[in-house]
């Protein structure tokens, strides 16, 4: 096995056509073409629009990544690709490109889990991913707490959202406040000028029997409804909606619940490390609150750079490189794209 496997990773699970190249723990390229602007006018991702954009962007993105990394294709040790979870029609574009590239070059192909990749990308930040560790993954489609014992073959989901994902709540609240899609970055920006304690929005599943039954689970649907009611009430009384305060108070409620449960998990299950990942981990308040609370609890917090938190190809390459260095079997030629691939399947057989 090469010490630093050179792996190209392809990610097309949602609206980013992304290609990353890594050599072991070194990031060589992280190239992204996004169709987000095409979706903004619809207020959400339109799967067929995303899939069409993936096909158009695939070869140009591959080209740019190879140029950035300064590698030639025959130098690669393997190809990795997101096999799921994600949008079915979008995933197959990446999976088919990866298989074809593997066949053309005579290189092994690893179909990998998108969520495990979000954790694996932490290994590109200068030191290997700590194992075992707890991981909090928060994005537009997921809000999960994981126990990661071995990134390649032992990830156990301990909690997840029972309704909306955190990123979904950001999108919906942004729409309520008249902010553009995607909601996360816009709410983050507007919230900078607001008071996070102005409105006491509910923290879902954090008390009484809910906490017993859903110890490590999340719920953001009630929070979204509470924000909607508050805004409606405000408008009904003819008052101007204090957008910055609403955004800051909403963001505080989300960050509070996420961090509270993640730190609780670390304390109760004895994890020394917490890894944050997914698009919502780019949120500035979530990052600062997590830093503060982890320090208080004696937990070492690891958060990838914002550009590696959102969907990217480097994270896929990082997990692929780990799989190569640990001698994992490549995927078969006929492995499928699985839109609801469970998080405990890190590699496709």
């Amino acid at each position: 096995m090469p010490d630093e496997p050179l792996v190209l990773g392809i990610e097309t699970s949602c609206d980013e056509t992304a290609v990353g190249i890594v050599a072991g723990h070194r990031l060589l390229a992280n190239t992204i073409a996004s169709s987000a602007d095409e979706h903004a006018r619809f207020g959400g991702i339109v799967p067929e629009v995303a899939s069409r954009a993936h096909l158009e962007a695939m070869v140009p993105t591959l080209q740019r990544a190879c140029k950035t990394a300064g590698i030639s294709l025959p130098d690669l040790d393997a190809i990795a690709v997101t096999a799921g979870p994600g949008l079915a029609g979008a995933l197959v574009v990446g999976v088919s490109a990866a298989k074809s590239l593997g066949l053309a070059l005579g290189k092994p192909v690893y179909g990998v889990n998108h969520l495990a990749s979000h954790v694996a990308v932490d290994g590109l930040s200068g030191s290997p991913v700590p194992e075992p560790a707890a991981a909090l993954l928060v994005s537009g489609g997921h809000s999960s707490l994981l126990a990661v014992t071995d990134l390649v073959d032992d990830i156990v989901p301990l909690g997840a959202t029972i309704d909306d994902a955190a990123g979904e709540a950001f999108d919906k609240v942004a729409r309520l406040l008249g902010l553009p899609f995607p909601g996360g970055p816009h709410i983050d920006e507007v919230a900078q000028g607001g008071d996070p304690s102005a409105i006491d929005f509910p923290r879902g599943l954090t008390g009484g029997r809910d906490l017993q039954r859903h110890r490590y689970d999340f719920s953001f649907s009630g929070l979204k409804t509470a924000v909607a009611r508050w805004v409606e009430q405000c408008r009904a009384e003819g008052r101007q909606v204090p957008v910055a305060d609403v955004a800051a108070s909403f963001q505080e409620a989300v960050a509070d619940v996420l961090v509270r449960k993640a730190v609780m998990l670390c304390s109760e299950q004895g994890f020394d490390h917490l890894i944050l990942g997914g698009g919502v981990a780019a949120n500035s308040r979530l990052r600062s609150l997590a830093e503060q609370k982890c320090e208080g609890a004696g937990v070492r917090l690891r958060i990838p750079a914002p550009g590696l938190c959102t969907d990217n190809g480097a994270m896929v390459a990082a997990l692929g490189s780990l799989a190569v260095s640990r001698g994992a079997q490549p995927s078969e030629d006929d492995f499928p794209a699985e839109s609801s691939l469970p998080v405990d399947v890190a590699l496709m057989s």
Partner: peptide
């Protein structure tokens, strides 16, 4: 059918580019 169609097209484009 769109999804199937893209499978062949992206495979051909990628193969052509790679070699």
């Amino acid at each position: 059918a769109f999804t199937g169609l893209r499978v062949g097209l992206v495979a051909a484009q990628t193969l052509g580019w790679a070699i």
